[in-house]
């Protein structure tokens, strides 16, 4: 311990604090997989026994599958569209001299602070006024709306992170704006694009309020789960589903972090 730098020397109270912090974050979440294997429809201690019944039930639960597929479809489209808008907006904001740039960016970021319930009601009024029937499309629309600010924030950071002379070099080497975008800008922004896709997908995937207002006959997974909670015997099935989603989320987050780190390693070489 002697040859540890002053700034790195161990600190016991801080270690303890870190443990408490992690417990606070993760213990509630860990109850989900724990009780999903409990052989009882009631979520209480003590455990009755180990079972995989709930997972087996989940595999046969057709409405759940439908809701899951709906959610994946809505989230995929919302993530793609929001990220596309995010790319164009971030490119414009970071590369061109636009008059009134700050108010424009502010306006795009505003949905971040508008409560979802207000946006939901507003959109509901709008689409019903326009005579558009409620469906997965209207949910997708709402999710695109709330995802764009997140996509933009992610992508602006990425676009600002790399040297503008890269794009100038591409132009210098014979590429017009179109080719420059496809051969330099997009590949270099790729980690940001992927991060934005994952982020927007996650936002859409667990979004409830907007989906609740804008859903037609087909529901997304959060709405399905909400309706299931009214029937106590369905609860363990929801826990099993939750455990599965949790596992997938962890994998996705680790993947995103790995990408982000690779992105940083890549951009640090951009400077000399």
């Amino acid at each position: 311990m002697k040859n540890v730098a002053y700034i790195n020397r161990p600190n016991r109270p801080l270690h303890l604090y870190a443990l408490v912090y992690l417990a606070f974050l993760y213990v509630p979440v860990l109850f989900l997989p724990l009780f999903s294997f409990n052989d009882s429809i009631y979520v209480t201690f003590p455990f009755k026994g180990f079972t995989t019944t709930w997972y087996e039930q989940m595999l046969d639960n057709k409405p759940m599958h439908a809701a899951l597929m709906n959610s994946i479809r809505v989230a995929s489209v919302a993530a793609l569209v929001a990220t596309m808008f995010g790319i164009f907006a971030a490119k414009a904001v970071t590369r061109y001299r636009i008059r009134g740039k700050k108010p424009v960016v502010g306006a795009i970021m505003l949905p971040l602070v508008i409560p979802g319930i207000i946006l939901g009601v507003a959109l509901l009024i709008l689409v019903s006024r326009l005579g558009i029937p409620l469906s997965l499309y209207t949910i997708t629309l709402g999710h695109i709306l709330i995802s764009i600010p997140f996509s933009m924030a992610t992508l602006i950071a990425r676009f600002e992170g790399f040297d503008k002379s890269m794009e100038e070099a591409a132009a210098d080497l014979g590429d017009n704006a179109w080719w420059t975008f496809w051969r330099v800008t997009l590949p270099m922004a790729f980690p940001g694009v992927l991060a934005s896709l994952l982020l927007c997908f996650t936002i859409s995937f667990d979004e409830f309020i907007m989906a609740f207002f804008l859903a037609g006959t087909e529901s997304t997974l959060p709405i399905f789960i909400y309706t299931q909670l009214r029937f106590p015997q369905k609860l363990p099935g929801v826990l099993a589903l939750g455990a599965c989603i949790l596992a997938v989320s962890f994998v996705v987050v680790f993947f995103a972090q790995w990408l982000r780190r690779r992105g940083i390693a890549g951009s640090s070489n951009v400077g000399v």
Partner: peptide, 8 residues
Amino acid sequence: QNYAIFPH
């Protein structure tokens, strides 16, 4: 000046 070598 910074060579602008494409990192990708």
